[in-house]
Design a protein around this nucleic acid. Structure first.
Length: 917
RNA sequence: AGUGCUAUAGCUCAGUUGGUUUAGAGCGCUGCCUUGACAGGGCAGAGGUCAUGAGUUCGAGUCUCAUUAGCACUACCA
C-alpha cells in the first residue's frame, strides 16, 4: 500500500483513473481493517457502545432486509468507534429449529434417500450439525462484503455450549418460580413438520373454500332435521354436540333432545350457548371439541366428549371410524360425497374464510389438543410493557408502541407455548418417571429429586425418560443480549457491555423477540449484575419492511428481491449502503427500486437500482474531487493579496458551514434519522464542498496553489471523509489514504470524529447572498451567450445593505473572481446595456455588449413581478385584518411588516428595470 | 369487525410546539453545454387545489371530526 501511495506522490494524476472502481478497493480495505483487528473489542476504561446483532437464521442468505438492518447497525457502530468509544458489535446466528430441521430433512431425503424416521435422534443431530458446519456461515461472510464491522472473534451461535447451558438454566429457574408449566391446551399443530407452533408462527390469510350445509336428524324422529354449516365436513365424524343460541326461537323446542351425527350415527346433545351467532348460516353450529379452539371451549362449558379423529400427520385416525388413514383433505371430499349420497348434504356454497398456515412449512395448521410446555405471561407482560411506558427503553419511531401495547396488554396477551416436537434445538430438561415430572439442569439432579420424591433410592437414570421435545428457538434468542457475553456463567464482560445501547430490528419480530428480550432482561440481569439498568437495550430502532416498487414485501416466493451480492458487485457496498439508507426514512417501510420497472422498456430490470447508482455516482464525485485537489501544484510564495483574501474568506465560510452540518448530523443521529443524515452530507459535500468551495479556491489553469489553502482544503476533505465514513466506509478510507501520506495505523476507520463547534450565522447568510449573486451572473452569461472566461462589467445599485455585504473582507473579490467580473462599481443610476437582476432586495447590473433578448427578459421579469405582487397582496390583506394585528404575536406582525417592505423594494426595482427595457 | 399507521411534485421523502416567503430536497423528466477533476459531469427549466369534506383559529400541509384509499396488527368467520 505504501508503494502505491509513493507512486501517487511522484505523479499523482496520471496514476489515478477518472472513474472510481469500488470492487478492489473494498476487498482491500476490509482485509486491512481485519488485519489491524479494529473491530475487536475488549473491556477497558473507555465508554462502551454495544450492539448485538439480531441473529439471522443459520440457514439464511443475505436478503434486502438484512442489508438494510445491518447497514444501519454498522453506521451506528462505526460512528461510535470514530467517537473514541469502545464499540462492540456482536455477530452470530440462531439455530432456527423448524427451518433448519426442514432443510436437513429435505437434504437427507434428496441427497441420501434417508427419512427422518429411519434415524435415531443422535444420528439425525449428527447430520444436522454437519449441515450447519457446511452452510451455516454463509450469511456472515456476506455481511463482510457489505462492510459490517462486527467483532467476528465474538461470533456466537444459539446452540453452542454456553448459550445452551443458559437456556437450560433459565428453563429450570422459571419452572421453580412457577412461571413455566405443562398444560393441555388447544395448540397450533403443523401436520407436515409435526410440531406445535406458537400463535406468532401461524399466518392467517383469506382463502377460497366451500361452506357445506349438512342436515342432522333429531333423535327419536323420522323426519325432523337441523342444518348446520361447516367448512370442514371431515370433522363431522368427531362431532359431540350441536349448539344453538339460547335466544333463538327457531330451536327452542329442541331443548333436551339429541341429534344424530351422520355416518357414525352418534347421538349428541343439542346445547344452548351464547357463542353461537344467530345470524350466521343456519344459526346452528356443530361442535367438535377436539378440532376447533372455540368448540373446545364450548365443549368444556357443557361437558361434551372430546373425540380426536386425526393422526399427527393429518390423516384420519381409528376414532374417525370412516376414511381411516386418508389425508384430511381427501377425507373432506369423500365425506362430502358420502353425505350427498345419504341426502344429507343440503347445499354447498363458495366461501372465503381465513385459513391459518405454518409460517415455515405453509401447511394448514390443525388445532389440536396437546400437552405442551408454556411460559406464563403473568407479570412478564406488565414488565415488558412498563419498560417502554416508563421510558427505560425508547422506541424509534415512537408510534410502534401502540402495536406493542395492544399485544402485551392484559386482555390480549397469551401464554407462550415453548415446546416443539423437533430434534434440532435445545431439548427440554424435564424427565419423567411414570406420571411424575422432574425438571433439572442435569439428569443426575433430576434423578436425585425423583429418588427423594418417590422415596425409592434404587432409582437409576435408566428409569427416567427425558421429554422428547425441543424448545422454541426464541426461547434461546430472548437471552441473546446476556448470553452472547456468557453472562449466565460469569459477569466479567456482561458487567461492561450490558445494557447494550441500541437494538436495530424489523417490527415484524417485535413480539417474537423484542418484547421477550425485555422480559428476560428484567427477569435475570438484576440477579447477575448490581447497580445496572435491567433493560437489555436503551433504544430500539425498528426498521420498515423492504418492499418493491409496487409495495409488495420482498420475498423469495415472489422472486421480487434483488440479489444482494450482485448489487454490491455492480454499485459497490458503499453504493448499496447509500441506496438503502437514502430511501430508508426512519420507521417507514422502504420502497426499494430494485428490480424496478424500466419506464421506457416497461420491463422489470433485475438487480438494478437508481438509488444505488446515486451512491456510486456520489463516490465517483468524491473521487474526482480528490483528483482535482491532488492535481494542484503547491507553490511556497504567497499569492497576490486579492486571491489570499478570497481563499481566506472561503476557508472561514466553509469552516462555519462544516460546524453547522456536523451539528445537524448529530441531531439526525440522535433521532436515528439516518436518511436525513446521509442526504444532508450528500448535499453538503457535493453542493457546498465541491461545487462552491473547491471552485472558489481552484487556481487558474496552469497556476499553483499556496500551501496554506491547499492544506486547509485537504483538512476539510479529510474531516468530511471521517463524518461520511459510517455511511460509506470504503470510499472514504480510500480517499483518506490517497489525500496524503499516512503513517501505519493512521486510518479513516479509527480517525477522530469532530465535535460540533460554534459557527457564524451572519457569515453563512452573507455567503448565501454571495452565491446567489454569482449564480445569477452566470445565468445571464449563459442566457446571453457570453464566453465563460470573458470578464464582465458589473454595477450595484447602492444601498446600505449591499455596501455592508460587500465590505466583508474578501467577499467582493470572491464575487469578481468566481463570477469572472472586471470589477464591482456602485452606482445610483441605470448603466447602459445593463441586464438587471434582483438578489435579495438588491439590484445589480451586468453589462452585456450585445443585443439583449428583450422579449425573454421582459417575460421573465413580468412573471417574477406578478408573483411578487400576488405575494404582496396576501401580506397586505393580512395586515389589513384588524383581528390579525390585534391577536397575532408582535413578532409575527413585525415579520409581516418586514416581508412587506422587502417585497415592495423588490417590486420597485423590478418595475424600474422593466420600464428601462 | 376492532385497532394502529400512512396519504404533500412522475417516484422516494422533508416540512420540528399552527405564523420566514401563494410548500422544499433527492431521483427521474425536458432543454442547453464537452479543450484541463468528474457525461457516473455542469447549467437551466417544467412539474403540487398538500387524498376528500367540514370544523377550530386573526391565521391550517400542520390541530379536531367525518369520509375515502393503501398498509399492517389483533380477533372471528361454524
Amino acid at each position: 500500500m505504501c508503494d502505491f501511495i509513493k507512486k501517487i506522490e511522484i505523479n499523482k494524476m496520471k496514476e489515478i483513473p477518472t472513474r472510481y472502481q469500488p470492487n478492489d478497493v473494498e476487498d482491500k480495505w476490509y482485509a486491512h481493517w481485519m488485519d489491524k483487528n479494529y473491530f475487536h473489542s475488549e473491556p477497558d476504561d473507555r465508554e462502551p457502545y454495544t450492539i448485538v446483532i439480531p441473529p439471522p437464521n443459520v440457514t439464511g442468505v443475505l436478503h434486502m432486509g438484512h442489508m438494510l438492518n445491518n447497514t444501519i447497525q454498522d453506521v451506528l457502530i462505526r460512528k461510535a468507534r470514530l467517537e473514541g468509544k469502545n464499540a462492540c458489535w456482536v455477530p452470530g446466528t440462531d439455530h432456527a429449529s423448524i427451518a433448519t430441521e426442514n432443510k436437513v430433512i429435505k437434504m437427507l431425503k434428496e441427497e441420501k434417500g434417508i427419512k427422518k424416521s429411519d434415524l435415531t435422534r443422535e444420528e439425525f443431530l449428527k447430520h444436522a450439525w454437519e449441515w450447519k458446519e457446511k452452510y451455516g456461515g454463509i450469511i456472515l461472510d456476506q455481511l463482510k462484503k457489505l462492510g459490517a464491522s462486527c467483532d467476528w472473534e465474538r461470533t456466537r451461535f444459539t446452540m453452542e455450549e454456553s448459550l445452551s447451558k443458559a437456556v437450560t438454566k433459565v428453563f429450570v429457574d422459571l419452572y421453580k418460580k412457577g412461571k413455566i408449566y405443562r398444560g393441555l391446551r388447544m395448540c397450533n399443530w403443523d401436520p407436515k413438520v409435526q410440531t406445535v407452533l406458537s400463535n406468532e408462527e401461524v399466518e392467517f390469510k383469506e382463502e377460497h373454500s366451500k361452506l357445506y350445509h349438512v342436515k342432522y336428524r333429531i333423535e327419536g324422529t323420522e323426519n325432523e332435521w337441523v342444518t348446520i354449516a361447516t367448512t370442514r365436513p371431515e370433522t363431522i365424524l368427531a362431532d359431540t354436540g350441536i349448539a344453538v343460541n339460547p335466544k333463538d326461537e327457531r330451536y327452542a323446542h329442541l331443548k333436551g333432545k339429541n341429534a344424530i351425527v351422520p355416518l357414525v350415527n352418534r347421538a349428541v346433545p343439542i346445547i344452548f350457548d351464547n357463542y353461537v351467532d344467530m345470524e350466521f348460516g343456519t344459526g346452528c353450529l356443530k361442535v367438535t371439541p377436539a378440532h376447533d379452539t372455540n368448540d373446545y371451549e364450548i365443549g368444556k362449558r357443557h361437558g361434551l366428549e372430546v373425540i380426536d379423529s386425526f393422526n399427527a400427520d393429518g390423516t384420519l385416525s381409528e376414532a374417525a371410524q370412516f376414511f381411516v388413514g386418508e389425508d384430511r383433505f381427501v377425507a373432506r371430499k369423500l365425506m362430502a360425497a358420502e353425505l350427498e349420497k345419504l341426502g344429507q348434504l343440503v347445499q354447498t356454497e363458495d366461501y372465503q374464510n381465513s385459513v391459518g398456515r405454518s409460517e415455515r412449512s405453509k401447511a394448514i395448521v390443525e388445532p389440536r389438543l396437546m400437552l405442551q410446555w408454556w411460559v406464563s405471561m403473568d407479570g412478564f407482560a406488565k414488565t415488558a410493557l412498563d419498560a417502554v411506558k416508563d421510558g427505560d427503553v425508547d422506541f424509534f419511531p415512537k408510534h410502534i408502541f401502540n402495536m406493542y401495547n395492544s399485544w402485551l396488554k392484559e386482555e390480549n396477551v397469551r401464554d407462550w407455548c415453548i415446546s416443539r416436537q423437533l430434534w434440532w434445538g435445545h431439548r427440554i430438561p424435564a424427565w419423567y418417571y411414570g406420571e411424575e415430572v422432574f425438571v433439572a439442569e442435569t439428569i443426575e439432579e433430576a434423578l436425585a429429586e425423583a429418588q427423594k420424591k418417590t422415596g425409592n433410592a434404587a432409582l437409576t437414570t435408566d428409569d427416567l425418560i427425558q421429554d422428547d421435545d425441543a424448545l422454541d428457538t426464541w426461547f434461546s434468542s430472548w437471552l441473546w443480549p446476556i448470553s452472547v457475553f456468557d453472562g449466565f456463567e460469569n459477569q466479567d464482560e456482561l458487567n461492561y457491555y450490558y445494557p447494550t445501547n441500541v437494538l436495530v430490528t424489523g417490527w415484524d419480530i417485535m413480539f417474537f423477540w423484542v418484547a421477550r428480550m425485555i422480559m428476560a432482561g428484567y427477569e435475570w440481569s438484576g440477579d447477575l449484575l448490581e447497580n445496572k439498568p435491567k433493560y437489555p437495550f436503551k433504544d430500539v430502532y425498528f426498521t420498515g419492511m423492504v418492499r418493491d416498487v409496487i409495495k409488495r414485501k420482498m420475498s423469495k416466493s415472489i422472486g421480487n428481491s434483488p440479489d444482494s451480492l450482485k448489487l454490491i458487485e455492480k454499485y459497490g457496498a458503499d453504493g448499496v449502503r447509500f441506496g438503502m439508507l437514502s430511501s430508508a426514512a426512519a420507521g417507514n417501510d422502504i420502497i426499494f427500486d430494485a428490480p424496478f420497472i424500466d419506464p421506457k422498456k416497461q420491463l422489470a430490470v433485475k438487480d438494478e437500482s437508481d438509488n444505488c447508482m446515486q451512491g456510486l455516482n456520489f463516490a465517483n464525485k468524491m473521487w474526482n474531487g480528490m483528483r482535482l485537489v491532488l492535481s494542484w501544484k503547491i507553490i511556497e510564495q504567497p499569492l497576490n493579496e486579492d486571491l489570499g483574501r478570497v481563499n481566506a474568506l472561503a476557508g472561514q465560510w466553509f469552516e462555519s458551514l462544516l460546524q453547522k452540518n456536523i451539528a445537524a448530523l448529530e441531531e439526525s443521529y440522535s433521532q436515528y434519522r439516518l436518511n436525513e443524515g446521509v442526504m444532508g452530507l450528500y448535499n453538503f459535500i457535493w453542493g457546498d464542498f465541491f461545487s462552491w468551495y473547491l471552485e472558489i479556491i481552484k487556481p487558474p489553469y496552469g497556476e499553483g496553489i499556496d500551501r496554506k489553502t491547499y492544506e486547509t482544503a485537504v483538512n476539510f476533505f479529510e474531516r468530511l471523509m471521517t463524518i461520511l465514513h459510517p455511511f460509506m466506509p470504503f470510499v472514504t478510507e480510500e480517499i483518506w489514504h490517497l489525500l496524503k501520506e499516512r503513517k501505519d495505523g493512521e486510518d479513516c476507520v479509527i480517525s477522530r470524529y469532530p465535535t460540533a463547534g460554534a459557527f457564524d450565522e451572519k457569515l453563512l447568510a452573507d455567503f448565501e447572498a454571495t452565491k446567489d449573486i454569482i449564480s445569477k451572473v452566470r445565468d445571464i452569461r449563459t442566457k446571453n451567450g457570453l464566453k465563460k472566461h470573458e470578464p464582465l462589467k458589473f454595477f450595484v445599485q447602492k444601498t446600505d445593505g449591499v455596501e455592508q455585504l460587500l465590505s466583508r473582507e474578501g467577499l467582493k473579490e470572491t464575487i469578481i473572481r468566481t463570477a469572472v467580473l472586471e470589477s464591482i462599481v456602485f452606482t445610483d443610476s441605470e448603466p447602459e446595456n445593463g441586464v438587471a437582476f434582483i438578489s435579495g432586495p438588491e439590484k445589480f447590473y451586468v453589462i452585456v455588449e450585445k443585443e439583449i433578448d428583450v422579449e425573454a427578459e421582459r417575460e421573465k421579469m413580468t412573471k417574477e413581478l406578478n408573483r411578487l405582487q400576488g405575494f404582496l397582496t396576501g401580506i397586505e390583506k393580512k395586515l389589513g385584518n384588524e383581528r390579525f394585528v390585534n391577536n397575532a404575536p408582535e413578532k409575527v406582525v413585525a415579520m409581516e411588516h418586514k416581508k412587506k417592505s422587502d417585497t415592495e423594494a423588490k417590486i420597485k426595482n423590478l418595475e424600474e428595470a422593466l420600464a428601462k427595457l
